[in-house]
Design a protein around this nucleic acid. Structure first.
Length: 562
RNA sequence: UGCGGGAUCGUAUAAUGGUAGUACAGCAGACUCUGGAUCUGCUUAUCUAGGUUCGAAUCCUAGUCCCGCAGCCA
């Protein structure tokens, strides 16, 4: 049960190390990931998933997936399905431990009965509004409900009738009898059960009362034999309540609740409320829009599970509120993709180049490496011909000092091909736009020939016009234009915060013909541009999502000179 | 002016009374048929003020600032 030392510890693994040293729980470690199925999982959940499943792996324990489905009004089977897909996709396995809080409704009900019998819970018939008023404020104690002194017999009767559906929503609730004067508001007779005439995705119409989080969560943990119940900081105030229920009731064990700081990422949001709003207001195409921080969105964008897990490892776990820079996520992505993504060439903003000294109809086959650092990934044949495309960015008519690429009279190497020289520029008579470049190639400079070691400053990507196939490319940028949109949204409408350039659609791109066979989930490096993958929305068209750009030194130089 | 937490380079995270370290970002250079990758070097931090101690990010005292809590949400 010793930790592998390759993984950096944190304050939670320190606690667990200690527990194991003291033989607490007989040295066992059982965790759980308890999502509410009311939305899609996002990168913040990934942190929790990696933490909980990671700890189980680390200590040779187990981690349960438990749907915390106690609020049927907001929950849906589609979210349950999506959550399971995402956790699996991240590479975690809950084995036979797929659970639902709703599986325990009967047992939770009888725990409630026990509490009533003990005189520690009562049916309160105050309205929601009255309950709020009786609760007091942050600085003033609450007042006891007039129903607090109902007899056990009456409470039993009323609670059973609540279950049998006799009452309207809001007519009664079951409350714990703790302390209306407690400085911790969570302890001022919290609600245990409320009446809801809603259809539950799993229990249908069977129940008309549903348990609240504070009551059901600790007991579900205890029922499952969870040893370490890891949750986020905002539940710290609720921990005394978590412990209170477990102390009152005959439960098999008493899990330890440990709180950590949730993940925040720059230029995006983790709030399910805001994410839902983005979806329902049509700011994005859905929960899996590639700009969304959802697992489904990241997957469609081309993120790999390895990159996400590496990221979750690198950000660490602590109790202080923090905001991680998006650059770290992108670094983890590039780091993973660089080692694995096959290389191909694509031209996003084509300019046509005519190779003057290569006759029409002549085609020169060339070998290109699929991965320059991994020869075992093989190579492929590409073709050089009289008409090729290069990217607009790789040509400048009046180049500044540090521009190494093609310009009039200058030479550049075509990747895996020849050195070409720009002889002249052809412009549109009317607009003055460059329509073609006329170049010559040096047949002695073929890549790999070794004979000609002529140095040129730059190598650029290109595509043979007759061999390339057209494609759309979607370039993504951050969804928001401010670092902390969740804070900004307090005093600015959502619309103003969305980055108008978060999606740029390019419809005149070309890619190597073999990409007609590509599949979503296979990420390519378009050499010198970035990582791209086929979009999973099957429109019959070739559409590539930019997963992430390559680091661009030239862009930085340009910025500095401005 | 209640209760519960938290404060370490720009960001995130280590150091459990003994050299303030690591990663990302930034800057500079080397190398390169991807201005990619890789490699090298550099800049930058213990919230404040006292105290204990040979020695304090760590312990004590007093402040300051930040976050959370008044759902029949989780």
């Amino acid at each position: 049960m010793e930790r592998e030392n390759k993984i950096q510890g944190n304050f939670i693994t320190n606690i667990i190390d200690n527990d194991i040293r003291n033989n607490k729980n007989n040295g066992k470690v059982v965790t759980r990931f308890p999502p509410e199925p009311n939305g899609y999982l996002h990168i913040g959940h990934a942190k929790s998933i990696c933490l909980n499943f990671g700890i189980a792996l680390l200590y040779n324990g187990r981690c349960h997936l438990r749907f915390d489905d106690t609020n049927p009004e907001k929950e849906d089977q589609k979210y349950i399905d999506a959550i399971m897909t995402d956790v699996h996709w991240l590479g975690f396995d809950w084995g036979e431990h797929l659970h639902y809080t709703s599986d325990y409704f009967e047992r939770l009900y009888s725990f409630a009965l026990t509490l009533i019998e003990q005189g520690k819970a009562y049916v309160c018939s105050l309205s929601p509004d009255e309950i709020r008023k009786y609760r007091g404020t942050l600085t003033e104690p609450g007042i006891e409900s007039p129903y607090r002194s109902r007899s056990i017999v009456e409470n039993m009767d009323l609670f059973q009738r609540m279950r049998s559906g006799e009452f309207e929503e809001g007519a009664h609730v079951l409350r714990a009898k703790i302390d209306m004067a407690s400085p911790n508001i969570a302890l001022r007779d919290p609600t245990l059960y409320r009446i809801k005439q809603a259809h539950h995705p799993r229990t249908g119409q069977k129940w008309t009362i549903y348990p609240m989080y504070d009551f059901s969560h600790c007991l579900s943990d205890a029922i499952e034999g969870i040893t370490h119940s890891i949750c986020t900081l905002e539940f710290e105030n609720n921990r005394p309540l978590y412990d209170w229920f477990l102390d009152q009731l005959p439960v098999p064990c008493h899990p330890q609740q440990i709180e950590f700081a949730r993940l925040n990422l720059t230029y995006t949001v983790m709030s399910k409320r805001i994410l839902l709003k983005l979806v329902s207001n049509g700011h994005v195409s859905g929960w899996d829009d590639p700009r969304m921080p959802t697992i489904a969105g990241l997957r469609r964008r081309g993120y790999t599970k390895e990159a996400i897990r590496m990221f979750c490892e690198r950000i660490g776990v602590a109790k202080r509120d923090s905001m991680v820079e998006m650059a770290l996520l992108e670094h983890c992505l590039r780091d993973d993709l660089n080692t694995r993504a096959p290389r191909v060439m694509a031209v996003l903003h084509p300019i046509k180049v005519i190779i003057l000294n290569l006759p029409e109809g002549e085609v020169i086959p060339l070998q290109a490496l699929n991965h320059p650092e991994k020869p075992e990934m093989g190579d492929r044949t590409i073709y050089f011909s009289r008409e090729i495309y290069i990217d607009q960015e790789d040509f400048m008519e009046n180049p500044p000092k540090k521009f190494y690429r093609l310009s009039p009279g200058r030479e550049v190497r075509l990747r895996y091909a020849f050195i070409i020289k720009c002889e002249s520029i052809i412009k549109d008579q009317q607009t003055g736009d460059i329509t073609e470049l006329h170049c010559t190639y040096d047949p002695l400079t073929q890549s790999g020939s070794g004979a000609q070691d002529r140095k040129v400053k730059a190598t650029i990507h290109w595509l043979s016009a007759i061999h390339a196939i057209p494609a759309d490319v979607r370039l993504y940028d951050t969804l928001f234009n401010v670092e902390n949109p969740a804070a900004a949204i307090e005093h600015e409408p959502l619309e103003n915060l969305i980055n108008p350039k978060s999606l740029e659609v390019l419809t005149t791109c070309f890619v190597e013909s073999e990409l007609s066979q590509s599949k979503p989930g296979v990420i390519y490096q378009f050499e010198r541009i970035g990582y791209f993958c086929l979009d999973s929305n099957d429109s019959g068209k070739l559409v590539f999502n930019r997963t992430v750009s390559l680091k661009d030194q030239w862009a930085k130089i340009q910025k500095q000179s401005m």
